[in-house]
Design a protein around this nucleic acid. Structure first.
Lengths: 145, 145
DNA sequence: TTCTTCTTTAGAATAATTCTAAACTGTTGA
DNA sequence: TCAACAGTTTAGAATTATTCTAAAGAAGAA
C-alpha cells in the first residue's frame, strides 16, 4: 500500500519529496530531495538562496550555492515555488502557492503573507493587445510608526 | 552684466530646476541641475541609473555613474522621484509622482503606467501593531500571448 | 554492468550598486 | 571679492547577488 501523499510520514518523508519532484519532471537527486525537504517540510516560508544554503549547511546537507540557485529556479519553473520581488538586489522564494499577497517590512527585509481572500484588486485595465496578464502582485510596504 | 562661463540661460529653465532642488533642500550643483532637466523636462518616464547616465553622456553632460546613483537616491528621498522594484537586480526610478500603478512587460523589462484612478485595492488588512502602511504597490505582470 | 544524460560543483565571471578618499565647488560671511 | 568650510563629485576599488563554465559525479535505461 502506498502512503498518503498529503501527509508527512516519518519514514516516508524522503520518498514523498522524491515523488513530488518526479511528478514535476525533475530527477530526484540527493540535493534536490534534501532542499525540497527543507523547503516544504514546514509551514509557508519566504527565503533567499543564501538563507536556504545556510539552512542546508546547518542541517548537515552538503550542497553548493550554485546548486541552491539552480534548484530554486527549477522549482519555480515547475511551480513548486513562487518568486517574489520586493527589493532590488534580493530575491525571495515563497513556498505558499496559494493566491495571496504580501506585507513587506522595509526596515527588516521581512515578508509576511496576506491571505488571498482578503485583498481584492478592482478596476484592472485590459492588457495592451498581444499581451495577457500573467499575474498581479500587491506589496503592502510597512514601516515603523 | 556678467558674461560668466556657465550662466547661459535664456528662458529660465535652469533656474526652475535649481529652485526646485533648493526647495527640496538639495544644493543645486551643475550635475544635479543637469540631471533634473533630463528627468523632469519631458513626460513621465521610468529609467535606470545606467539609462540616465547614458542619456546624460549623449546630452553632453559629464557626470559619473556614482553621482547618477547618488542623485537618484537623493531625489527619491526628497520625493522628486519614486523607486519602483519589479525585478531583482534592477531598479527603476519613476518621474510620475501621482498615485498610480504599473504594468510590467516581463519579456522586455519595460514599465508602463496605469493611471491611479483605474485600479482600486480593497480588503487591505490592518498593519500589524507598531507598523503603518507606507504604500501599496501593484504590479500587473504581462507576457506575450 | 555500462552507457548516456542530467546534475553538481568550485571557482571565475558578470552586473548592479555602494564605498572610499581625494579633489572640487557652492555658499557664506567679512 | 575672496577665503574658508561644508557639501559634492569622482575614479576606481569593493561588495553583493547571481550566473556561467567545464570538468567530475550520479541517476536511469538497457
Amino acid at each position: 500500500m502506498r502512503a498518503s501523499r498529503s501527509q508527512a510520514r516519518q519514514s516516508g518523508d524522503k520518498n514523498t519529496a522524491a515523488e513530488r519532484l518526479r511528478e514535476a519532471g525533475l530527477r530526484p537527486t540527493k540535493q534536490r530531495v534534501a532542499l525540497a525537504n527543507l523547503l516544504f517540510g514546514k509551514e509557508d516560508r519566504h527565503l533567499s538562496a543564501e538563507t536556504l544554503h545556510d539552512e542546508a549547511r546547518r542541517a548537515g546537507v552538503r550542497v553548493s550555492l550554485a546548486t541552491v540557485y539552480n534548484t530554486l529556479h527549477q522549482f519555480t519553473d515547475a511551480h513548486l515555488l513562487k518568486q517574489v520581488t520586493v527589493e532590488a538586489g534580493r530575491s525571495y522564494f515563497d513556498t505558499n502557492l496559494h493566491d495571496h499577497q504580501h506585507f513587506y517590512l522595509e526596515d527588516e527585509g521581512v515578508l509576511i503573507d496576506i491571505p488571498g481572500t482578503s485583498i481584492e484588486v478592482a478596476g484592472l485595465p485590459a492588457a495592451p493587445r498581444g499581451l495577457s496578464i500573467d499575474r498581479v502582485d500587491v506589496v503592502v510596504r510597512l514601516k515603523r510608526n
